[in-house]
């Protein structure tokens, strides 16, 4: 299924990206080409291959990459907001949002 310009505009909106008309045209062509490569994989017979969601698998090790429930020191309020564009009283300050 080819990528349409509407798809590109929707993806741009979801990603909060502003595209010029030229950009949306060229991205439509580019994205369509990229997905074309992936379509090529459909030519392979994968009926006997188990689906894989990760390139790193735990290969049966149930304790792989886990930690004990121990609270460790955090960065602390000052460091946490130090690089924020705007903060007050230890809070990050952002343009007003309502609801969620």
């Amino acid at each position: 299924m080819p990528i349409t310009k509407d798809d590109v505009l929707k993806i741009a909106e979801l990603a909060r990206l502003e595209l010029t008309p030229e950009e949306s045209e060229s991205f439509t062509v580019q994205l369509d080409a990229i997905l074309g490569y992936i379509d090529k994989l459909d030519e392979l017979d994968t009926r006997e291959v188990a689906p894989m969601s990760h390139s790193t698998t735990a290969s049966g090790d149930t304790e792989y990459s886990r930690r004990d429930d121990v609270a460790r020191p955090s960065l602390g309020q000052q460091s946490a907001v130090a690089n924020a564009p705007d903060s007050e009283a230890g809070y990050f300050k952002v343009p007003k949002v309502i609801g969620n």
């Binding site: 930690r67 121990v70 955090s74 309020q77 230890g90 809070y91």
Partner: peptide, 22 residues
């Protein structure tokens, strides 16, 4: 739990804002 799901920061309620972050 004592600590968060993916890091060691404390889950304590009511602490100083952004104090328990990493």
């Amino acid at each position: 739990t004592e600590s968060k799901i993916f890091c060691g920061c404390s889950t304590r309620f009511g602490d100083t804002p952004n104090g328990n972050t990493c």
